[in-house]
Design a protein around this nucleic acid. Structure first.
Lengths: 194, 194
DNA sequence: ACCTGAACACCGTTCAAGT
DNA sequence: ACCTGAACACCGTTCAAGT
Protein backbone atom coordinates (compact mmCIF):
# COMPACT_ATOMS: atom_id res chain seq x y z
CA UNK A 1 0.00 0.00 0.00
CA UNK A 2 1.40 3.34 -1.11
CA UNK A 3 1.93 5.83 1.72
CA UNK A 4 0.94 8.56 -0.74
CA UNK A 5 -2.68 7.41 -0.42
CA UNK A 6 -2.63 8.48 3.22
CA UNK A 7 -0.70 11.68 2.84
CA UNK A 8 -2.98 14.42 4.07
CA UNK A 9 -0.88 17.52 3.86
CA UNK A 10 2.08 17.94 1.59
CA UNK A 11 2.58 21.13 3.63
CA UNK A 12 3.15 21.59 7.36
CA UNK A 13 0.91 20.63 10.29
CA UNK A 14 -2.23 18.49 10.21
CA UNK A 15 -5.38 20.25 9.10
CA UNK A 16 -8.61 20.52 11.03
CA UNK A 17 -11.06 17.86 9.88
CA UNK A 18 -13.34 20.28 7.98
CA UNK A 19 -10.39 22.02 6.35
CA UNK A 20 -9.02 18.68 5.26
CA UNK A 21 -12.36 17.79 3.69
CA UNK A 22 -12.59 21.16 1.97
CA UNK A 23 -9.12 20.75 0.54
CA UNK A 24 -10.02 17.37 -0.90
CA UNK A 25 -13.25 18.72 -2.36
CA UNK A 26 -11.41 21.63 -3.93
CA UNK A 27 -8.94 19.30 -5.61
CA UNK A 28 -11.75 17.11 -6.86
CA UNK A 29 -13.62 20.09 -8.25
CA UNK A 30 -10.48 21.58 -9.80
CA UNK A 31 -9.71 18.27 -11.49
CA UNK A 32 -13.14 18.26 -13.11
CA UNK A 33 -13.14 21.93 -14.08
CA UNK A 34 -9.57 21.93 -15.41
CA UNK A 35 -10.36 18.84 -17.45
CA UNK A 36 -13.37 20.55 -18.97
CA UNK A 37 -12.05 24.09 -19.42
CA UNK A 38 -8.28 24.04 -19.01
CA UNK A 39 -6.08 25.49 -16.31
CA UNK A 40 -7.31 29.02 -17.02
CA UNK A 41 -10.81 28.08 -15.91
CA UNK A 42 -12.76 30.25 -13.48
CA UNK A 43 -11.72 29.82 -9.85
CA UNK A 44 -15.25 30.79 -8.80
CA UNK A 45 -16.51 27.76 -10.70
CA UNK A 46 -14.15 25.51 -8.78
CA UNK A 47 -15.12 26.92 -5.38
CA UNK A 48 -18.83 26.70 -6.23
CA UNK A 49 -18.49 23.13 -7.43
CA UNK A 50 -16.57 22.24 -4.27
CA UNK A 51 -19.33 23.85 -2.19
CA UNK A 52 -16.98 26.27 -0.43
CA UNK A 53 -16.50 30.02 -0.42
CA UNK A 54 -13.99 31.51 -2.79
CA UNK A 55 -11.94 32.66 0.19
CA UNK A 56 -11.45 29.04 1.23
CA UNK A 57 -9.99 28.25 -2.15
CA UNK A 58 -7.51 31.08 -1.77
CA UNK A 59 -6.63 29.98 1.77
CA UNK A 60 -5.72 26.48 0.61
CA UNK A 61 -4.23 27.47 -2.74
CA UNK A 62 -2.95 31.06 -2.73
CA UNK A 63 -2.08 30.89 -6.43
CA UNK A 64 -3.43 29.02 -9.40
CA UNK A 65 -0.10 27.25 -9.73
CA UNK A 66 -0.44 25.86 -6.21
CA UNK A 67 -3.67 24.23 -7.30
CA UNK A 68 -2.17 22.90 -10.51
CA UNK A 69 0.91 21.63 -8.71
CA UNK A 70 -1.14 19.76 -6.12
CA UNK A 71 -3.17 18.15 -8.87
CA UNK A 72 -0.27 16.96 -10.98
CA UNK A 73 2.07 16.24 -8.06
CA UNK A 74 1.87 12.47 -8.24
CA UNK A 75 2.07 12.56 -12.01
CA UNK A 76 5.25 14.60 -11.88
CA UNK A 77 6.69 12.09 -9.44
CA UNK A 78 5.80 9.31 -11.84
CA UNK A 79 7.44 11.03 -14.79
CA UNK A 80 10.59 11.58 -12.75
CA UNK A 81 10.60 7.95 -11.55
CA UNK A 82 10.05 6.73 -15.10
CA UNK A 83 13.00 8.83 -16.20
CA UNK A 84 15.24 7.30 -13.54
CA UNK A 85 14.22 3.80 -14.62
CA UNK A 86 14.99 4.69 -18.22
CA UNK A 87 18.49 5.79 -17.23
CA UNK A 88 19.21 2.06 -16.90
CA UNK A 89 17.96 1.14 -20.38
CA UNK A 90 20.39 -0.17 -22.95
CA UNK A 91 19.43 2.13 -25.80
CA UNK A 92 19.76 5.63 -24.39
CA UNK A 93 18.24 7.26 -27.46
CA UNK A 94 15.12 5.11 -27.33
CA UNK A 95 14.95 5.77 -23.59
CA UNK A 96 15.03 9.52 -24.15
CA UNK A 97 12.36 9.19 -26.84
CA UNK A 98 10.09 7.14 -24.57
CA UNK A 99 10.54 9.56 -21.69
CA UNK A 100 9.75 12.61 -23.83
CA UNK A 101 6.56 10.91 -24.98
CA UNK A 102 5.51 10.60 -21.35
CA UNK A 103 6.32 14.28 -20.85
CA UNK A 104 4.06 15.11 -23.80
CA UNK A 105 1.25 13.06 -22.28
CA UNK A 106 1.76 14.79 -18.94
CA UNK A 107 1.63 18.23 -20.55
CA UNK A 108 -1.61 17.27 -22.26
CA UNK A 109 -3.41 16.46 -19.00
CA UNK A 110 -5.17 19.81 -18.95
CA UNK A 111 -5.35 22.38 -21.70
CA UNK A 112 -3.09 25.24 -20.64
CA UNK A 113 -0.81 23.05 -18.57
CA UNK A 114 2.03 23.04 -21.10
CA UNK A 115 2.14 26.83 -20.99
CA UNK A 116 2.21 26.85 -17.21
CA UNK A 117 5.06 24.35 -17.23
CA UNK A 118 7.13 26.43 -19.63
CA UNK A 119 6.49 29.60 -17.64
CA UNK A 120 7.23 27.78 -14.40
CA UNK A 121 10.62 26.51 -15.52
CA UNK A 122 11.68 30.14 -15.87
CA UNK A 123 10.19 31.11 -12.50
CA UNK A 124 10.25 29.99 -8.91
CA UNK A 125 6.69 28.92 -8.15
CA UNK A 126 5.89 25.56 -6.59
CA UNK A 127 5.08 24.37 -10.08
CA UNK A 128 8.55 25.56 -11.02
CA UNK A 129 10.16 23.25 -8.49
CA UNK A 130 8.40 20.23 -9.97
CA UNK A 131 9.42 21.30 -13.48
CA UNK A 132 13.03 21.75 -12.57
CA UNK A 133 13.31 18.39 -10.84
CA UNK A 134 11.77 16.86 -13.92
CA UNK A 135 14.12 18.69 -16.25
CA UNK A 136 17.09 17.48 -14.25
CA UNK A 137 16.18 13.91 -15.12
CA UNK A 138 15.75 14.90 -18.75
CA UNK A 139 19.23 16.42 -18.72
CA UNK A 140 20.68 13.10 -17.51
CA UNK A 141 18.87 11.16 -20.22
CA UNK A 142 20.26 13.52 -22.84
CA UNK A 143 23.78 13.31 -21.45
CA UNK A 144 23.67 9.53 -21.49
CA UNK A 145 22.48 9.43 -25.10
CA UNK A 146 25.33 11.75 -25.99
CA UNK A 147 27.85 9.49 -24.21
CA UNK A 148 26.51 6.60 -26.28
CA UNK A 149 26.98 8.74 -29.37
CA UNK A 150 23.32 8.69 -30.39
CA UNK A 151 22.58 12.36 -29.75
CA UNK A 152 24.64 15.08 -31.40
CA UNK A 153 27.26 16.47 -29.02
CA UNK A 154 26.39 20.10 -29.84
CA UNK A 155 22.83 19.68 -28.62
CA UNK A 156 22.02 20.81 -25.07
CA UNK A 157 19.35 19.40 -22.80
CA UNK A 158 17.68 22.81 -22.94
CA UNK A 159 17.29 22.29 -26.68
CA UNK A 160 15.57 18.99 -26.08
CA UNK A 161 13.25 20.34 -23.39
CA UNK A 162 12.48 23.44 -25.43
CA UNK A 163 11.55 21.45 -28.53
CA UNK A 164 9.40 19.09 -26.49
CA UNK A 165 7.68 22.00 -24.74
CA UNK A 166 7.17 23.67 -28.07
CA UNK A 167 5.42 20.60 -29.39
CA UNK A 168 3.34 20.33 -26.23
CA UNK A 169 2.24 23.94 -26.73
CA UNK A 170 1.16 23.47 -30.32
CA UNK A 171 -0.68 20.19 -29.90
CA UNK A 172 -2.96 21.60 -27.22
CA UNK A 173 -4.30 24.10 -29.73
CA UNK A 174 -6.53 21.88 -31.76
CA UNK A 175 -6.71 18.30 -32.95
CA UNK A 176 -4.86 18.96 -36.20
CA UNK A 177 -1.49 18.41 -34.53
CA UNK A 178 0.08 15.00 -33.86
CA UNK A 179 2.50 15.26 -30.94
CA UNK A 180 4.18 11.88 -31.32
CA UNK A 181 4.82 12.49 -34.98
CA UNK A 182 6.28 15.96 -34.38
CA UNK A 183 8.41 14.64 -31.54
CA UNK A 184 9.76 11.90 -33.78
CA UNK A 185 10.70 14.42 -36.45
CA UNK A 186 12.35 16.72 -33.95
CA UNK A 187 14.35 13.85 -32.47
CA UNK A 188 15.55 12.88 -35.93
CA UNK A 189 17.22 16.28 -36.01
CA UNK A 190 19.04 15.66 -32.74
CA UNK A 191 20.25 12.20 -33.67
CA UNK A 192 23.91 11.80 -34.37
CA UNK A 193 24.50 10.67 -37.95
CA UNK A 194 27.22 8.04 -38.03
CA UNK B 1 5.32 55.27 -54.20
CA UNK B 2 3.45 52.28 -52.89
CA UNK B 3 -0.31 52.40 -53.38
CA UNK B 4 -0.60 50.69 -49.98
CA UNK B 5 0.34 53.99 -48.35
CA UNK B 6 -2.87 55.53 -49.67
CA UNK B 7 -5.16 52.61 -49.06
CA UNK B 8 -7.84 53.90 -46.77
CA UNK B 9 -10.23 51.00 -46.48
CA UNK B 10 -9.30 47.40 -47.08
CA UNK B 11 -13.06 46.87 -46.71
CA UNK B 12 -15.93 48.29 -48.75
CA UNK B 13 -16.98 51.89 -49.34
CA UNK B 14 -15.03 55.03 -48.39
CA UNK B 15 -15.38 56.08 -44.78
CA UNK B 16 -16.59 59.39 -43.47
CA UNK B 17 -13.63 61.63 -42.66
CA UNK B 18 -14.00 61.34 -38.89
CA UNK B 19 -14.47 57.58 -39.07
CA UNK B 20 -11.37 57.30 -41.18
CA UNK B 21 -9.39 59.29 -38.63
CA UNK B 22 -10.75 57.17 -35.79
CA UNK B 23 -9.79 54.01 -37.58
CA UNK B 24 -6.23 55.23 -38.05
CA UNK B 25 -6.01 56.30 -34.42
CA UNK B 26 -7.29 52.92 -33.25
CA UNK B 27 -4.66 51.10 -35.29
CA UNK B 28 -1.95 53.39 -33.96
CA UNK B 29 -3.10 52.84 -30.38
CA UNK B 30 -3.44 49.09 -30.87
CA UNK B 31 0.06 48.91 -32.30
CA UNK B 32 1.45 50.56 -29.19
CA UNK B 33 -0.65 48.60 -26.70
CA UNK B 34 -0.07 45.23 -28.39
CA UNK B 35 3.65 45.92 -28.49
CA UNK B 36 3.66 46.67 -24.79
CA UNK B 37 1.20 44.04 -23.52
CA UNK B 38 0.65 41.48 -26.26
CA UNK B 39 -2.43 40.76 -28.34
CA UNK B 40 -4.47 39.89 -25.23
CA UNK B 41 -4.20 43.47 -24.00
CA UNK B 42 -7.25 45.37 -22.80
CA UNK B 43 -9.44 46.74 -25.59
CA UNK B 44 -10.55 49.53 -23.26
CA UNK B 45 -6.92 50.62 -23.06
CA UNK B 46 -6.73 50.81 -26.82
CA UNK B 47 -9.94 52.81 -27.19
CA UNK B 48 -8.90 55.19 -24.40
CA UNK B 49 -5.47 55.70 -25.94
CA UNK B 50 -7.07 56.33 -29.33
CA UNK B 51 -9.42 58.86 -27.71
CA UNK B 52 -12.58 57.12 -28.88
CA UNK B 53 -15.42 55.28 -27.19
CA UNK B 54 -15.20 51.54 -26.83
CA UNK B 55 -18.19 51.19 -29.13
CA UNK B 56 -16.22 52.83 -31.91
CA UNK B 57 -13.51 50.24 -31.57
CA UNK B 58 -16.11 47.48 -31.91
CA UNK B 59 -17.70 49.18 -34.90
CA UNK B 60 -14.40 49.26 -36.78
CA UNK B 61 -13.06 45.96 -35.53
CA UNK B 62 -15.84 43.58 -34.43
CA UNK B 63 -13.34 41.01 -33.17
CA UNK B 64 -9.87 41.14 -31.75
CA UNK B 65 -8.63 39.18 -34.76
CA UNK B 66 -9.90 41.89 -37.09
CA UNK B 67 -7.67 44.35 -35.26
CA UNK B 68 -4.70 42.01 -35.32
CA UNK B 69 -5.24 41.21 -38.98
CA UNK B 70 -5.37 44.87 -39.96
CA UNK B 71 -2.17 45.52 -38.06
CA UNK B 72 -0.14 42.69 -39.56
CA UNK B 73 -1.77 42.84 -42.98
CA UNK B 74 1.19 44.35 -44.81
CA UNK B 75 3.58 42.10 -42.93
CA UNK B 76 1.68 39.02 -44.03
CA UNK B 77 1.80 40.26 -47.61
CA UNK B 78 5.55 40.70 -47.28
CA UNK B 79 6.07 37.20 -45.92
CA UNK B 80 4.01 35.77 -48.77
CA UNK B 81 5.89 37.82 -51.36
CA UNK B 82 9.21 36.78 -49.85
CA UNK B 83 8.10 33.16 -50.10
CA UNK B 84 7.26 33.57 -53.76
CA UNK B 85 10.67 35.10 -54.44
CA UNK B 86 12.32 32.22 -52.61
CA UNK B 87 10.52 29.73 -54.84
CA UNK B 88 13.00 30.85 -57.53
CA UNK B 89 16.09 30.24 -55.42
CA UNK B 90 18.59 27.55 -56.44
CA UNK B 91 18.82 25.82 -53.07
CA UNK B 92 15.26 24.97 -52.10
CA UNK B 93 16.23 23.78 -48.64
CA UNK B 94 18.03 27.00 -47.81
CA UNK B 95 15.08 28.91 -49.26
CA UNK B 96 12.67 27.08 -46.96
CA UNK B 97 14.94 27.75 -43.99
CA UNK B 98 15.17 31.44 -44.78
CA UNK B 99 11.44 31.71 -45.23
CA UNK B 100 10.66 29.96 -41.96
CA UNK B 101 12.98 32.36 -40.18
CA UNK B 102 10.91 35.23 -41.52
CA UNK B 103 7.77 33.46 -40.30
CA UNK B 104 9.31 33.22 -36.84
CA UNK B 105 10.10 36.93 -36.88
CA UNK B 106 6.55 37.69 -37.99
CA UNK B 107 5.07 35.57 -35.21
CA UNK B 108 7.23 37.40 -32.69
CA UNK B 109 5.83 40.83 -33.61
CA UNK B 110 3.46 40.86 -30.64
CA UNK B 111 3.39 38.51 -27.71
CA UNK B 112 0.37 36.26 -28.22
CA UNK B 113 0.40 36.54 -31.98
CA UNK B 114 1.84 33.08 -32.57
CA UNK B 115 -1.07 31.56 -30.64
CA UNK B 116 -3.60 33.56 -32.63
CA UNK B 117 -1.99 32.40 -35.87
CA UNK B 118 -2.14 28.75 -34.89
CA UNK B 119 -5.75 29.07 -33.77
CA UNK B 120 -6.61 30.99 -36.90
CA UNK B 121 -5.24 28.37 -39.27
CA UNK B 122 -7.80 25.94 -37.80
CA UNK B 123 -10.63 28.51 -38.04
CA UNK B 124 -12.18 30.89 -40.51
CA UNK B 125 -11.55 34.36 -39.12
CA UNK B 126 -10.03 37.11 -41.22
CA UNK B 127 -6.75 36.28 -39.55
CA UNK B 128 -7.32 32.73 -40.72
CA UNK B 129 -7.44 33.83 -44.35
CA UNK B 130 -4.07 35.50 -44.04
CA UNK B 131 -2.63 32.42 -42.34
CA UNK B 132 -3.90 30.08 -44.97
CA UNK B 133 -2.60 32.13 -47.86
CA UNK B 134 0.73 32.19 -46.09
CA UNK B 135 0.71 28.48 -45.44
CA UNK B 136 -0.01 27.80 -49.10
CA UNK B 137 3.31 29.42 -50.00
CA UNK B 138 5.01 27.37 -47.31
CA UNK B 139 3.55 24.21 -48.80
CA UNK B 140 5.06 25.10 -52.18
CA UNK B 141 8.46 25.72 -50.65
CA UNK B 142 8.34 22.34 -48.94
CA UNK B 143 7.23 20.57 -52.12
CA UNK B 144 10.07 22.11 -54.07
CA UNK B 145 12.66 21.07 -51.49
CA UNK B 146 11.26 17.56 -51.66
CA UNK B 147 11.51 17.56 -55.47
CA UNK B 148 15.14 18.56 -55.09
CA UNK B 149 15.58 15.69 -52.67
CA UNK B 150 16.64 17.84 -49.74
CA UNK B 151 13.54 17.32 -47.58
CA UNK B 152 12.44 13.83 -46.60
CA UNK B 153 9.57 12.63 -48.82
CA UNK B 154 7.51 11.40 -45.84
CA UNK B 155 7.35 14.89 -44.33
CA UNK B 156 4.24 16.97 -44.99
CA UNK B 157 4.02 20.72 -45.19
CA UNK B 158 1.75 20.54 -42.13
CA UNK B 159 4.66 19.01 -40.23
CA UNK B 160 6.86 21.90 -41.20
CA UNK B 161 4.29 24.56 -40.32
CA UNK B 162 3.43 22.81 -37.06
CA UNK B 163 7.05 22.59 -35.93
CA UNK B 164 7.64 26.20 -36.84
CA UNK B 165 4.48 27.30 -35.03
CA UNK B 166 5.50 25.21 -32.04
CA UNK B 167 8.84 27.01 -31.88
CA UNK B 168 7.12 30.37 -32.28
CA UNK B 169 4.89 29.50 -29.34
CA UNK B 170 7.70 28.52 -27.03
CA UNK B 171 10.04 31.42 -27.78
CA UNK B 172 7.43 34.00 -26.92
CA UNK B 173 7.35 32.67 -23.35
CA UNK B 174 10.54 34.14 -22.05
CA UNK B 175 14.01 34.97 -23.27
CA UNK B 176 15.52 31.55 -22.49
CA UNK B 177 14.52 30.19 -25.87
CA UNK B 178 16.44 30.73 -29.10
CA UNK B 179 14.10 30.40 -32.05
CA UNK B 180 16.70 30.30 -34.82
CA UNK B 181 18.61 27.58 -33.00
CA UNK B 182 15.50 25.47 -32.42
CA UNK B 183 14.39 25.96 -36.01
CA UNK B 184 17.79 24.81 -37.23
CA UNK B 185 17.59 21.67 -35.12
CA UNK B 186 14.06 20.90 -36.27
CA UNK B 187 15.03 21.35 -39.91
CA UNK B 188 17.92 18.95 -39.45
CA UNK B 189 15.30 16.33 -38.66
CA UNK B 190 13.43 17.02 -41.88
CA UNK B 191 16.50 16.97 -44.09
CA UNK B 192 16.91 14.02 -46.38
CA UNK B 193 20.06 12.06 -45.50
CA UNK B 194 21.78 11.05 -48.70
C1' DA C 1 -23.38 57.13 -40.56
C1' DC C 2 -21.12 57.17 -36.99
C1' DC C 3 -20.01 57.93 -32.05
C1' DT C 4 -20.67 57.57 -27.08
C1' DG C 5 -20.80 55.57 -22.68
C1' DA C 6 -23.91 53.37 -19.46
C1' DA C 7 -25.34 48.76 -18.58
C1' DC C 8 -24.69 43.97 -18.13
C1' DA C 9 -22.39 39.83 -17.09
C1' DC C 10 -18.38 38.19 -16.03
C1' DC C 11 -13.59 37.57 -13.57
C1' DG C 12 -9.61 37.53 -9.77
C1' DT C 13 -8.41 38.97 -5.22
C1' DT C 14 -8.87 40.82 -0.60
C1' DC C 15 -10.58 41.22 3.95
C1' DA C 16 -13.92 42.23 7.75
C1' DA C 17 -17.10 39.57 10.01
C1' DG C 18 -18.52 35.39 11.56
C1' DT C 19 -18.12 30.28 13.77
C1' DA D 1 -8.24 28.11 12.92
C1' DC D 2 -10.89 28.26 9.42
C1' DC D 3 -14.84 29.77 6.51
C1' DT D 4 -17.83 33.06 4.20
C1' DG D 5 -19.29 36.29 0.92
C1' DA D 6 -19.57 41.19 0.11
C1' DA D 7 -16.61 44.58 -1.89
C1' DC D 8 -13.41 46.27 -5.14
C1' DA D 9 -11.21 46.77 -9.42
C1' DC D 10 -11.03 45.03 -13.50
C1' DC D 11 -12.61 43.03 -18.29
C1' DG D 12 -15.43 42.14 -22.93
C1' DT D 13 -19.61 43.15 -25.30
C1' DT D 14 -24.03 45.25 -26.42
C1' DC D 15 -27.17 48.80 -27.45
C1' DA D 16 -30.20 52.93 -26.68
C1' DA D 17 -29.46 57.56 -27.15
C1' DG D 18 -27.25 61.14 -29.23
C1' DT D 19 -24.91 64.07 -33.37
Amino acid sequence: MSPALFTVDPERRPLRADAQRNRARLLEAAEAVFTAHGTEASLDDIARRAGVGIGTLYRHFPTRDDLVESLIHSMTDEVIARGQELLEADDAFAALHTWLQSVLRQNATYRGLAGSMVDASCGDSRLGDACQRQQAVGAELVARAQEQGSVRPDVTWEDVIDLTSAIALVIERGPRHDGDRLLGLALDGLRYQR
